[in-house]
Design a protein around this nucleic acid. Structure first.
Length: 295
DNA sequence: CCACAGGGCGGCA
DNA sequence: TGCCGCCCTGTG
């Protein structure tokens, strides 16, 4: 493992709170100094903002390229200003939502982690979702022990810490249902285990699914146990760059019914979103979701 | 004790 | 299709 620092100069539409608390990720936490720390595929990242610059400190595996990872993870090539203009045309509600969540960026997270995490999210609340994910990471993920020195460099705190990477397909697939039960996933544990096994033995390839177009990919994902329309859309949006995916949950249902389309039918809401925002639907969803949930 | 939380599944009409 | 009870668990 190595320590590395990266500075992204003069970033637009990049607000830490908006990105890490808009509901797309479960493993980022705010530090005393205002920065955020998260566990990602390659290790532990700490992100802070100084003026318009983003300072990223990382404790990561030797061989990986931090710049390349961040380009992809934070989707730095994406011009959010352009998207905002497109989706807020003649739409005061969206204008407000964008004003509120102006610094949102959709992260490009790990596919397997998103699959498992959003299966766990079903009929669950955020604190417990995070706890469940931490439990399985602790049990089946690789441990990263940080010394006092590391912590001082990374987070500006004088203590030692331990983090656990999200478990690999291989590691999680070796669990037994009985073991998993101790992670307190509730009725979701069997779905998690089944899909981990499928991913490990090659019956399920998330990499292949990502290559399909949105409709086909969603169809494949919803064949998996524990994965319905909403969970599939989350996986597609947060780990497969399908910006057209529009996850419809209870919050989105509310705001859509109040503002755009009166219907209890999720499919109808999906169709409406696709018609109105097209390839930007997923980003529109994030602005609306974040705005609704925080206000 | 009950309701409900960022759904999904299976059974039923 | 559309609707409903149920699923684990924690919290109010």
């Amino acid at each position: 493992m190595k320590f590395e620092e990266l500075i992204l100069k003069n970033q637009k539409n990049f607000e830490l709170k908006d990105i890490f608390e808009c509901g797309q990720c479960f493993r980022w936490q705010k530090e005393e100094n205002g920065s955020y720390t998260g566990v990602v595929k390659i290790g532990v990242l700490n992100v802070n903002k100084k003026a318009q610059d983003i300072v990223i400190k990382a404790y990561i595996e030797e061989k990986c390229d931090l710049k390349k990872f961040c380009d992809d993870y934070f989707n730095l090539a994406c011009d959010y200003e352009k998207i905002q203009k497109r989706i807020s045309k003649n739409d005061d509600v969206m204008k407000q939502a964008i004003k509120f969540g102006n610094g949102i960026r959709i992260l490009n997270q790990d596919r397997f982690e998103m699959l498992i995490s959003y299966i766990i999210s079903a009929a669950n609340n955020i604190p417990r979702i995070s706890k469940c994910i931490n439990n399985i990471s602790h049990e089946y993920g690789k441990k990263i022990a940080l010394s006092k020195d590391d912590c001082l460099k990374l987070f500006d705190v004088e203590e030692t810490r331990e983090y656990y990477l999200f478990p690999s397909e291989k590691s999680l697939s070796k669990a037994t249902l009985e073991e998993l039960r101790n992670c307190n996933l509730g009725f979701r544990d069997k779905y998690v285990l089944e899909n981990a096994k499928k991913a490990e033995d090659g019956e399920l390839s998330l990499e292949q699914i990502e290559k399909l177009d949105y409709k086909k990919a969603k169809k494949e994902l919803t064949k998996l146990s524990g994965v319905g329309d909403k969970v599939a859309d989350c996986i597609l949006l947060f780990s497969m760059r399908k910006s057209i995916a529009f996850p419809v949950d209870t919050w989105i249902k509310k705001i859509m019914n109040e503002t755009y389309v009166e219907s209890k039918n999720v499919k109808k809401i999906n169709e409406f979103a696709e018609g109105k925002w097209g390839e930007d639907a997923g980003i529109a969803q994030q602005y609306l979701f974040y705005y609704k949930r925080e206000n």
